[in-house]
């Protein structure tokens, strides 16, 4: 449905905004490398079922997300490594990995490799933006492109919420994916303060600065 398609394209747009920023400005300053690595982990653990993906739409997006994320990590770790400042990217990702790992082991739908990794990926994605938001907090401001990147990334999962509501009411056979919905709501909440600042500042064409 439209919400999900808009969400997936918003996700894709966020990746291209980020790629554009890094290549245009020849710098990955202001971008959290840790968050990008977490997203890489999210895609790998979620798309283990890539080979037998039924819908071509999903297949294409999965390939796009994995390949573009690999390229972003290459750019940040190799091509533009000098512009990477690890002293600003100091969030303890082990807490996030522990959080996702624990929930994946406690409440998977089924104790199979695929399902446990899938649950891990969903929970990890819900908190993967924290290093990036933490870095933003520390620097106190961000380039407009970085703000647009985070906004598009936040919008993607936010749009999945109406998608789930729509599916709940329109597809009688649809069972609510409680893990995805819970994590999706948590993820969107984590973006809420960013969205507020983004809306009040950037929409007025001002530079993105924390109050």
């Amino acid at each position: 449905n439209i919400f999900r398609v808009l969400g997936d394209f918003s996700h894709l747009a966020s990746i291209f905004i980020l790629l554009h920023k890094i290549q245009q400005l020849k710098s990955c300053s202001g971008i959290s490398f840790k968050s990008q690595v977490l997203y890489m982990l999210v895609y790998i653990t979620r798309y283990l079922d890539l080979p037998w993906t039924s819908s071509p739409y999903n297949f294409i997006f999965k390939v796009l997300f994995i390949s573009s994320e690999l390229y972003i990590i290459y750019l940040m770790a190799r091509a533009y490594k000098p512009t990477n400042d690890p002293n600003l990217d100091t969030f303890h990702v082990e807490f996030l990995l522990g959080f996702a790992g624990l929930l994946a082991l406690l409440f998977p739908y089924k104790y199979t490799i695929l399902e446990v990794f899938w649950a891990f990926s969903i929970w990890l994605e819900s908190v993967a933006i924290l290093p990036q938001l933490f870095m933003l907090q520390r620097t106190g401001e961000a380039e407009a492109m970085t703000a647009h990147y985070i906004a598009a990334l936040g919008m993607y999962r936010a749009l999945y919420i109406p998608n789930w509501i729509y599916r709940y009411f329109s597809e009688p056979t649809h069972k609510v994916d409680t893990i995805a919905v819970t994590a999706g709501i948590l993820q969107t909440i984590l973006y809420s303060d960013f969205f507020w600042i983004y809306y009040t500042k950037v929409m007025r064409g001002e530079k993105f600065k924390l109050p």
């Binding site: 997936d8 079922d49 999903n58 739908y109 089924k110 649809h174 409680t178 995805a180």
Partner: peptide
Amino acid sequence: KEKVQGHDEL
């Protein structure tokens, strides 16, 4: 029963 047969969302 939770939806399990493969996840149809990204």
